[in-house]
């Protein structure tokens, strides 16, 4: 290997690169450090909080569980997220399987419809959804919220999973069919295991989504006992003074940590899902 020469050019180059790296790290880390610091700050306002608290306290974390409805919100969200994950994965898998493996009348039109619908943000149909959910007596229920989420994700994720399934050789299905396997067996025993990465990606997305959505809960849920986390957290700092700021900081950190860890753990699947979306989407 060639030994690196210490030339003026190299010195300048590396000083530049490293100072850039450090500068970017600073930009990325400072808001994170600030919010963590704030959660240990006594008091409740933005004004008094400093980067590194002078008298650190874990009072806000205790308050979260004793003084506020944070645990209830947490459980509500966990319930919605889990239901949404299960329902969405099942529906998406069935739909993608049908589009990928069967040739039937209306298939192309169906896929085109899905593509166009994917472009229509669900927020835009809020009024109608509200009226419909009321009619079906699903307003102020978690099921209603799950239905809204699970429907909203169908177009995009179907397209994503279908792309992935297309890449699984059809000869596998055919071999199984000759051995007498039914369509359902092929789906559960061959297709699903082979498409695990993309299914994990879809499951993760649908699990994480409800934790940070405050739009649809506001539309669907009315009662205080039904509230989800994002709604509650957002309300704490919505107004100009951000009254419950330190509580928000503590609450946000508590929920961000597990989610960030989940992402880190499933990193491989996420990268795969992202690039599947990139090349086949």
């Amino acid at each position: 290997m060639m030994k690196k020469k210490i030339t003026l050019k190299n010195v300048i180059k590396y000083t530049l690169i490293y100072s850039l790296l450090i500068l970017i790290s600073f930009v990325i880390l400072s808001p994170v450090v600030w919010i963590i610091g704030s959660s240990f700050n006594p008091g409740s306002s933005v004004f008094s909080s400093t980067l590194i608290p002078k008298n650190p306290t874990i009072q806000h974390y205790i308050d979260l569980f004793t003084e506020t409805e944070y645990p209830l919100w947490f459980l509500n969200t966990l319930k919605v997220a889990t239901m949404n994950m299960i329902v969405s994965v099942i529906i998406t898998t069935l739909t993608a399987y049908a589009f990928s493996r069967f040739r039937f009348r209306g298939r192309k039109q169906g896929m085109m419809t899905i593509l166009v619908l994917q472009m229509f943000p669900s927020i835009l149909a809020m009024t109608a959804m509200y009226v419909l959910l009321t009619k079906l007596h699903l307003i102020n229920t978690h099921i209603g919220l799950v239905i809204v989420y699970a429907t909203g994700q169908i177009p995009f994720n179907t397209w994503l999973v279908k792309g992935y399934l297309d890449a699984i050789p059809r000869s596998l299905d055919e071999a199984a069919k000759i051995d007498g396997a039914s369509n359902i067996t092929i789906l559960t025993k061959i297709i699903m295991p082979l498409s695990k990465p993309i299914l994990v990606f879809v499951a993760l997305q649908n699990f994480v989504g409800p934790w940070f959505d405050f739009i649809f809960p506001q539309l669907v849920l009315r009662g205080a006992d039904k509230k989800t986390l994002a709604m509650g957290l957002f309300n704490w700092i919505k107004d100009r003074q951000a009254n419950q700021f330190t509580l928000f900081a503590a609450g946000a950190i508590l929920v961000a940590i597990p989610i960030t860890l989940l992402y880190a753990y499933f990193q491989k699947h996420i990268v795969e899902g992202l690039s599947a979306g990139a090349t086949k989407g």
Binding site: I91, L117, F120, S122, A125, T127, A128, M129, L132, I147, V148, A150, T151, G152, I154, P155
Partner: peptide
């Protein structure tokens, strides 16, 4: 069913 009721109908 879901798309008809919760996507198409609202649109």
């Amino acid at each position: 069913v879901l798309i008809i009721f919760f996507t198409l109908l609202p649109i």
